[in-house]
Amino acid sequence: MMNRWLKEVARGKRGARDLAYEEALQAAEAILEMKATPAQIGAFLIAQRVKEESVEELAAFVEACRKHAARAPLQQGIDCAAPYDGRRTSFMSGLAVAFVLAAAGLPATLHGADPLPPKWGVTLPDVLAAAGIPRASLAKSRCIAAARETGVLVVHAEDWCPPLKSLRPIREELGMRTVLNTAEKFADYGCSAYLTFGVFHSTMFDRIGRLTSRLGYRKGMVVQGSEGSDDLYIHRPTRICRIENGETCLQMIDPETYGLDTPLPERSWTAAEQAAATEQALQNAGHIAFIHQVLLNGAVRLHLAERADSIEEGIYACKALLESGRPWALYRRWMELVKNQPSAV
Protein backbone atom coordinates (compact mmCIF):
# COMPACT_ATOMS: atom_id res chain seq x y z
CA MET A 1 0.00 0.00 0.00
CA MET A 2 2.78 2.44 0.92
CA ASN A 3 4.40 2.02 -2.48
CA ARG A 4 1.22 3.35 -4.04
CA TRP A 5 1.46 6.66 -2.17
CA LEU A 6 5.20 6.88 -2.67
CA LYS A 7 4.69 6.76 -6.42
CA GLU A 8 2.45 9.81 -6.17
CA VAL A 9 4.52 12.04 -3.89
CA ALA A 10 8.03 11.05 -4.99
CA ARG A 11 7.92 11.93 -8.68
CA GLY A 12 9.95 15.09 -8.20
CA LYS A 13 8.85 18.73 -8.11
CA ARG A 14 7.02 18.62 -11.43
CA GLY A 15 5.54 15.13 -11.35
CA ALA A 16 4.54 14.79 -7.69
CA ARG A 17 0.96 15.45 -6.68
CA ASP A 18 -0.72 16.23 -3.38
CA LEU A 19 -2.60 13.33 -1.86
CA ALA A 20 -6.29 13.67 -1.18
CA TYR A 21 -7.24 13.66 2.50
CA GLU A 22 -8.27 9.98 2.59
CA GLU A 23 -5.13 8.94 0.72
CA ALA A 24 -2.91 10.92 3.08
CA LEU A 25 -4.75 9.47 6.07
CA GLN A 26 -4.01 5.93 4.88
CA ALA A 27 -0.35 6.85 4.44
CA ALA A 28 -0.24 8.49 7.88
CA GLU A 29 -1.80 5.44 9.51
CA ALA A 30 0.70 3.15 7.80
CA ILE A 31 3.53 5.29 9.13
CA LEU A 32 2.28 5.77 12.70
CA GLU A 33 1.35 2.11 13.05
CA MET A 34 4.72 1.08 11.54
CA LYS A 35 2.99 -0.98 8.87
CA ALA A 36 5.38 0.50 6.33
CA THR A 37 9.07 -0.38 6.38
CA PRO A 38 11.61 2.13 7.75
CA ALA A 39 12.89 2.68 4.20
CA GLN A 40 9.39 3.44 2.93
CA ILE A 41 8.68 5.76 5.85
CA GLY A 42 11.93 7.66 5.34
CA ALA A 43 11.35 7.94 1.59
CA PHE A 44 7.80 9.20 2.06
CA LEU A 45 8.79 11.81 4.65
CA ILE A 46 11.61 13.13 2.47
CA ALA A 47 9.42 13.19 -0.65
CA GLN A 48 6.74 15.12 1.24
CA ARG A 49 9.26 17.68 2.37
CA VAL A 50 10.55 18.18 -1.18
CA LYS A 51 7.01 18.47 -2.52
CA GLU A 52 5.76 20.49 0.49
CA GLU A 53 2.76 19.23 2.39
CA SER A 54 -0.71 20.45 1.45
CA VAL A 55 -3.31 21.46 4.04
CA GLU A 56 -5.20 18.22 3.28
CA GLU A 57 -2.08 16.14 3.91
CA LEU A 58 -1.25 18.02 7.10
CA ALA A 59 -4.81 17.58 8.35
CA ALA A 60 -4.60 13.84 7.70
CA PHE A 61 -1.38 13.48 9.69
CA VAL A 62 -2.87 15.53 12.53
CA GLU A 63 -5.93 13.27 12.56
CA ALA A 64 -3.71 10.18 12.70
CA CYS A 65 -1.66 11.63 15.57
CA ARG A 66 -4.81 12.52 17.50
CA LYS A 67 -6.24 9.04 16.95
CA HIS A 68 -3.19 7.48 18.61
CA ALA A 69 -2.84 10.10 21.36
CA ALA A 70 -4.30 10.19 24.86
CA ARG A 71 -6.58 13.22 24.71
CA ALA A 72 -9.10 14.44 27.27
CA PRO A 73 -10.99 17.71 27.87
CA LEU A 74 -8.87 18.48 30.92
CA GLN A 75 -7.91 22.03 30.12
CA GLN A 76 -10.04 23.48 27.31
CA GLY A 77 -7.93 26.60 27.65
CA ILE A 78 -4.92 27.47 25.49
CA ASP A 79 -2.49 25.07 23.84
CA CYS A 80 1.01 26.49 23.44
CA ALA A 81 2.61 24.57 20.57
CA ALA A 82 6.35 25.19 20.64
CA PRO A 83 8.83 23.26 18.46
CA TYR A 84 9.91 19.84 19.70
CA ASP A 85 13.44 20.32 18.38
CA GLY A 86 14.07 22.82 21.16
CA ARG A 87 15.96 26.07 21.64
CA ARG A 88 19.62 27.01 21.49
CA THR A 89 19.99 30.80 21.52
CA SER A 90 16.81 32.20 23.10
CA PHE A 91 14.94 32.12 26.41
CA MET A 92 12.09 29.61 26.51
CA SER A 93 9.49 31.88 28.11
CA GLY A 94 6.57 29.49 27.58
CA LEU A 95 7.03 27.57 30.83
CA ALA A 96 6.86 30.71 32.98
CA VAL A 97 4.05 32.13 30.84
CA ALA A 98 1.93 29.01 31.41
CA PHE A 99 1.86 29.59 35.17
CA VAL A 100 1.06 33.28 34.71
CA LEU A 101 -1.87 32.30 32.48
CA ALA A 102 -3.06 29.69 34.98
CA ALA A 103 -2.89 32.27 37.76
CA ALA A 104 -5.09 34.49 35.58
CA GLY A 105 -7.65 31.68 35.26
CA LEU A 106 -6.65 30.50 31.78
CA PRO A 107 -5.62 26.80 31.76
CA ALA A 108 -2.50 26.20 29.65
CA THR A 109 -1.12 23.07 28.00
CA LEU A 110 2.57 22.62 27.20
CA HIS A 111 3.96 19.64 25.31
CA GLY A 112 7.29 18.48 23.98
CA ALA A 113 9.73 15.60 23.83
CA ASP A 114 13.42 14.83 24.06
CA PRO A 115 15.57 16.74 21.53
CA LEU A 116 14.83 16.10 17.86
CA PRO A 117 16.22 17.23 14.52
CA PRO A 118 16.82 19.52 12.87
CA LYS A 119 17.80 21.82 15.77
CA TRP A 120 18.58 19.33 18.55
CA GLY A 121 18.07 22.14 21.06
CA VAL A 122 17.07 22.31 24.72
CA THR A 123 13.50 21.04 25.08
CA LEU A 124 10.76 21.29 27.70
CA PRO A 125 11.62 17.93 29.37
CA ASP A 126 15.29 19.03 29.50
CA VAL A 127 14.36 22.22 31.36
CA LEU A 128 12.10 20.39 33.78
CA ALA A 129 14.81 17.81 34.48
CA ALA A 130 17.25 20.62 35.23
CA ALA A 131 14.64 22.10 37.61
CA GLY A 132 14.44 18.82 39.52
CA ILE A 133 11.63 17.02 37.70
CA PRO A 134 13.07 13.81 36.24
CA ARG A 135 11.55 12.09 33.24
CA ALA A 136 9.73 9.55 35.42
CA SER A 137 7.85 12.34 37.21
CA LEU A 138 6.17 13.33 33.93
CA ALA A 139 4.00 10.20 33.94
CA LYS A 140 0.50 10.89 32.66
CA SER A 141 -1.26 10.32 35.98
CA ARG A 142 1.02 12.77 37.78
CA CYS A 143 0.68 15.46 35.12
CA ILE A 144 -3.11 15.06 34.96
CA ALA A 145 -3.42 15.39 38.74
CA ALA A 146 -1.18 18.46 38.73
CA ALA A 147 -3.17 20.02 35.89
CA ARG A 148 -6.46 19.56 37.71
CA GLU A 149 -5.18 21.53 40.68
CA THR A 150 -2.91 24.11 39.04
CA GLY A 151 -4.34 24.62 35.55
CA VAL A 152 -1.06 23.73 33.82
CA LEU A 153 -0.87 20.48 31.87
CA VAL A 154 2.60 19.32 30.83
CA VAL A 155 2.75 16.49 28.29
CA HIS A 156 5.69 14.37 27.24
CA ALA A 157 4.45 13.65 23.74
CA GLU A 158 6.06 10.24 23.35
CA ASP A 159 4.20 8.97 26.43
CA TRP A 160 0.87 10.38 25.33
CA CYS A 161 1.27 9.47 21.65
CA PRO A 162 3.37 6.25 21.56
CA PRO A 163 3.85 6.13 17.75
CA LEU A 164 6.03 9.24 18.05
CA LYS A 165 8.42 7.22 20.23
CA SER A 166 8.44 4.37 17.71
CA LEU A 167 9.28 6.78 14.89
CA ARG A 168 12.08 8.56 16.76
CA PRO A 169 14.96 6.39 15.38
CA ILE A 170 13.88 7.07 11.79
CA ARG A 171 13.53 10.81 12.45
CA GLU A 172 16.92 10.94 14.12
CA GLU A 173 18.54 9.19 11.17
CA LEU A 174 16.90 11.53 8.67
CA GLY A 175 18.07 14.52 10.69
CA MET A 176 15.63 16.96 9.07
CA ARG A 177 12.22 18.49 9.49
CA THR A 178 9.32 16.33 8.28
CA VAL A 179 5.53 16.53 8.28
CA LEU A 180 5.66 15.01 11.76
CA ASN A 181 7.29 18.18 13.12
CA THR A 182 4.07 19.99 12.29
CA ALA A 183 1.51 17.27 13.01
CA GLU A 184 2.80 16.41 16.48
CA LYS A 185 2.28 20.00 17.66
CA PHE A 186 -1.43 19.79 16.75
CA ALA A 187 -2.17 16.69 18.89
CA ASP A 188 -4.09 18.97 21.30
CA TYR A 189 -3.85 16.74 24.36
CA GLY A 190 -6.04 18.97 26.55
CA CYS A 191 -8.74 19.67 23.92
CA SER A 192 -8.02 23.40 24.00
CA ALA A 193 -10.21 26.14 22.57
CA TYR A 194 -7.27 28.44 21.79
CA LEU A 195 -3.90 27.83 20.16
CA THR A 196 -0.54 29.50 19.74
CA PHE A 197 1.68 27.81 17.17
CA GLY A 198 5.29 28.62 16.32
CA VAL A 199 6.74 28.61 12.80
CA PHE A 200 10.19 29.42 11.50
CA HIS A 201 9.19 30.85 8.11
CA SER A 202 6.35 33.26 7.41
CA THR A 203 5.67 31.25 4.24
CA MET A 204 3.93 28.77 6.57
CA PHE A 205 1.36 31.32 7.74
CA ASP A 206 -1.22 30.51 5.08
CA ARG A 207 -1.08 26.73 5.40
CA ILE A 208 -0.96 26.64 9.19
CA GLY A 209 -3.64 29.30 9.38
CA ARG A 210 -5.99 27.32 7.14
CA LEU A 211 -5.19 24.13 9.06
CA THR A 212 -5.89 25.83 12.41
CA SER A 213 -9.23 27.05 11.10
CA ARG A 214 -10.09 23.60 9.75
CA LEU A 215 -9.33 21.95 13.10
CA GLY A 216 -11.99 24.01 14.83
CA TYR A 217 -10.12 26.13 17.37
CA ARG A 218 -12.12 29.10 18.61
CA LYS A 219 -9.14 31.35 17.97
CA GLY A 220 -5.54 30.72 16.98
CA MET A 221 -2.31 32.61 16.53
CA VAL A 222 0.58 31.49 14.34
CA VAL A 223 3.81 33.15 15.47
CA GLN A 224 7.08 33.57 13.60
CA GLY A 225 8.87 33.67 16.92
CA SER A 226 12.23 32.99 18.51
CA GLU A 227 13.87 29.99 16.79
CA GLY A 228 10.56 29.05 15.19
CA SER A 229 8.71 29.03 18.51
CA ASP A 230 5.47 30.68 19.59
CA ASP A 231 7.45 33.12 21.80
CA LEU A 232 7.18 36.72 20.62
CA TYR A 233 10.44 38.63 20.44
CA ILE A 234 11.09 41.29 23.06
CA HIS A 235 13.82 43.15 21.19
CA ARG A 236 12.07 43.55 17.83
CA PRO A 237 8.64 43.20 16.19
CA THR A 238 7.16 39.75 15.63
CA ARG A 239 5.06 38.67 12.65
CA ILE A 240 1.89 36.81 13.60
CA CYS A 241 -1.20 35.48 11.88
CA ARG A 242 -4.46 35.51 13.87
CA ILE A 243 -7.20 33.03 12.99
CA GLU A 244 -10.85 33.49 13.94
CA ASN A 245 -14.13 32.43 12.32
CA GLY A 246 -12.30 30.98 9.32
CA GLU A 247 -10.55 34.28 8.62
CA THR A 248 -6.83 35.01 8.90
CA CYS A 249 -5.27 38.37 9.65
CA LEU A 250 -1.55 39.19 9.45
CA GLN A 251 -0.21 41.53 12.12
CA MET A 252 3.01 42.81 13.63
CA ILE A 253 3.39 43.00 17.40
CA ASP A 254 6.05 45.50 18.40
CA PRO A 255 7.20 45.43 22.05
CA GLU A 256 8.22 49.07 21.74
CA THR A 257 4.52 49.97 21.43
CA TYR A 258 3.98 48.70 24.98
CA GLY A 259 7.20 50.04 26.52
CA LEU A 260 8.71 46.56 26.72
CA ASP A 261 11.37 46.73 24.00
CA THR A 262 14.52 45.39 25.69
CA PRO A 263 17.95 44.35 24.37
CA LEU A 264 18.72 40.67 24.84
CA PRO A 265 22.03 39.22 26.03
CA GLU A 266 23.72 37.01 23.45
CA ARG A 267 24.19 33.52 24.82
CA SER A 268 23.92 29.82 24.10
CA TRP A 269 21.45 28.31 26.56
CA THR A 270 21.79 25.18 28.64
CA ALA A 271 18.82 23.45 30.25
CA ALA A 272 20.03 24.57 33.68
CA GLU A 273 20.19 28.20 32.54
CA GLN A 274 16.68 27.95 31.06
CA ALA A 275 15.35 26.53 34.33
CA ALA A 276 17.07 29.22 36.42
CA ALA A 277 15.80 32.06 34.20
CA THR A 278 12.27 30.60 34.30
CA GLU A 279 12.23 30.47 38.09
CA GLN A 280 13.70 33.97 38.40
CA ALA A 281 11.10 35.40 36.00
CA LEU A 282 8.29 33.73 37.95
CA GLN A 283 9.61 35.52 41.05
CA ASN A 284 9.65 38.81 39.11
CA ALA A 285 13.44 38.79 39.32
CA GLY A 286 16.43 38.19 37.07
CA HIS A 287 17.14 39.85 33.71
CA ILE A 288 14.50 42.44 32.86
CA ALA A 289 14.35 41.24 29.24
CA PHE A 290 13.09 37.83 30.34
CA ILE A 291 10.51 39.36 32.68
CA HIS A 292 9.32 41.57 29.82
CA GLN A 293 9.16 38.54 27.53
CA VAL A 294 6.91 36.75 30.01
CA LEU A 295 4.71 39.84 30.32
CA LEU A 296 4.31 40.32 26.57
CA ASN A 297 3.71 36.66 25.75
CA GLY A 298 1.31 36.28 28.64
CA ALA A 299 -0.60 39.40 27.64
CA VAL A 300 -0.95 38.38 24.00
CA ARG A 301 -2.31 34.98 25.04
CA LEU A 302 -4.77 36.48 27.51
CA HIS A 303 -6.02 38.77 24.75
CA LEU A 304 -6.26 35.90 22.25
CA ALA A 305 -8.24 33.82 24.74
CA GLU A 306 -10.64 36.66 25.52
CA ARG A 307 -9.39 37.12 29.10
CA ALA A 308 -8.20 40.68 28.37
CA ASP A 309 -9.78 43.32 26.17
CA SER A 310 -6.42 44.44 24.81
CA ILE A 311 -2.75 43.53 24.93
CA GLU A 312 -2.18 46.57 27.17
CA GLU A 313 -4.75 45.27 29.67
CA GLY A 314 -3.10 41.86 29.50
CA ILE A 315 0.30 43.35 30.32
CA TYR A 316 -1.09 45.10 33.40
CA ALA A 317 -2.77 41.87 34.50
CA CYS A 318 0.39 39.79 34.05
CA LYS A 319 2.51 42.38 35.83
CA ALA A 320 0.14 42.43 38.80
CA LEU A 321 0.15 38.64 38.93
CA LEU A 322 3.96 38.40 38.93
CA GLU A 323 4.13 41.00 41.70
CA SER A 324 1.54 39.08 43.72
CA GLY A 325 3.63 35.89 43.69
CA ARG A 326 0.70 33.71 42.55
CA PRO A 327 2.39 32.27 39.42
CA TRP A 328 5.46 31.33 41.45
CA ALA A 329 3.28 29.67 44.10
CA LEU A 330 1.41 27.72 41.38
CA TYR A 331 4.70 26.60 39.86
CA ARG A 332 5.98 25.36 43.22
CA ARG A 333 2.71 23.54 43.86
CA TRP A 334 2.88 21.94 40.41
CA MET A 335 6.42 20.76 41.20
CA GLU A 336 5.26 19.20 44.46
CA LEU A 337 2.37 17.41 42.79
CA VAL A 338 4.33 15.81 39.96
CA LYS A 339 7.03 14.70 42.37
CA ASN A 340 4.68 13.17 44.92
CA GLN A 341 1.72 11.78 43.00
CA PRO A 342 1.71 8.02 42.30
CA SER A 343 2.86 7.32 38.75
CA ALA A 344 0.41 4.56 37.76
CA VAL A 345 -1.98 5.61 34.99
Rank of each mutant, 00 (worst) to 15 (best):
R4G: 01
K7A: 12
K7R: 07
V9W: 08
V9C: 11
A10Q: 10
E22R: 02
L25H: 08
Q26N: 13
I31D: 05
P38F: 05
F44M: 08
E53T: 04
A60G: 13
F61N: 00
A69T: 09
A70Y: 10
G77P: 09
A81G: 11
A82T: 04
G86N: 03
S90C: 03
A98P: 02
L110A: 08
H111E: 10
D114I: 01
K119G: 00
G121C: 14
G121T: 05
V127K: 00
V127I: 00
A130I: 00
A136W: 08
L138F: 04
R142N: 09
A145C: 05
L153S: 02
H156M: 13
E173A: 12
T178C: 14
E184H: 06
L195T: 10
H201L: 03
F205V: 13
D206C: 03
R207V: 14
I208E: 12
S213F: 08
R214E: 15
K219E: 13
Q224P: 09
C241Q: 10
C241A: 11
L260T: 01
L260W: 03
S268G: 15
Q283A: 11
A285P: 07
I288V: 04
V300E: 12
L302I: 15
E313Y: 05
A320C: 10
L322Q: 00
A329L: 00
R333F: 02
N340P: 09
